[in-house]
């Protein structure tokens, strides 16, 4: 096994309302692979993703402990440069949320706030990101239109493109296709399969089928606990834990 991209040790998270979202999770996330984080709603998937790029800072947290490292970087460190972290770990949300800007500005936003000023360089990066997200062909002639004018599927690929533009190391997707039609879903899945050779991908899938289809590794979360962590085919063909067995075979959830 190659060295893990992100190592999580004994991660514990409790919100101010008393809810224990993550109960002592330990997990190694492998580079250049798709790790699927799945389980019933409220199991801790989203909380985990929020911790990894510290969007958790926007929530009311009562206690967070344990250790999360990406290489030498201590992700849970108080004084961490969270802005830099978020550029390295990008996230795509479950609903497409285009910023109320133009298509171009949606993608250049992250680059500009990172200090990129050169017009040509911005243009090149935007084009590259749109091509990666397989959106360029559809919209190259209306980059200055409002992003809200795109269709839902296009908007979600735009959201993907603006993460890619930052050239992150890790891409996290939280049920990215839950609001999309099958064709758009297929486009995104296709992209992910292609992209895993360059990125570390964390996917909270939209359903079981997607989980099985996409996973190189799979982590099953239930009520804040990591029940089982295994290779993708092992998890879905031959789960070891009784609870993951039941869930995978559709007995609950």
């Amino acid at each position: 096994m190659p060295e893990a991209k992100i190592t999580i040790r004994d991660l514990y998270l409790r919100y101010s309302d008393g809810k224990e979202a993550l109960k002592h999770i330990s997990l190694d996330i492998q580079p250049n692979a798709i790790t699927v984080v799945f389980g019933p709603a409220g199991g801790g998937k989203s909380s985990l993703l929020k911790v990894l790029n510290r969007l958790i800072d926007l929530s009311d947290v009562e206690e967070m402990s344990g250790e999360v490292r990406m290489g030498k970087l201590d992700i849970l460190e108080r004084g961490l440069d969270v802005v830099g972290l978020r550029r390295r770990i990008g996230v795509v949300f479950s609903r497409p949320i285009p910023l109320p800007l133009t298509i171009f500005q949606n993608i250049s936003f992250g680059l500009e706030v990172a200090g990129m000023r050169d017009k040509d360089e911005l243009r090149a990066r935007v084009e590259k990101a749109l091509k990666q997200a397989v959106l360029w062909e559809e919209i190259y002639d209306r980059l200055d239109d409002p992003a809200a004018s795109l269709s839902g599927g296009q908007q979600q690929r735009l959201c993907l493109a603006r993460v890619l533009a930052l050239e992150p190391e890790v891409i996290m997707l939280d049920e990215p296709t839950s609001a999309l039609d099958p064709v758009s879903t297929a486009k995104i899945e296709e992209f992910l399969q292609e992209a895993k050779k360059d990125y570390t991908i964390l996917l909270a899938p939209h359903n079981q089928q997607q989980a099985a289809r996409m996973s190189d590794y799979a982590a099953f979360f239930l009520q804040g606990e990591l029940v089982e962590y295994a290779g993708g085919s092992d998890m879905f063909m031959n789960p070891k834990d009784k609870r993951s067995q039941d869930y995978v075979q559709g007995r609950f959830g």
Binding site: L58, I97, P100, L101, F109, A114
Partner: peptide, 18 residues
Amino acid sequence: RVVGVSLGGTQWQTIRRV
């Protein structure tokens, strides 16, 4: 605001630009 911050914007950058 969440999206702006998730793309590496600081709070103020997100407020000012978006």
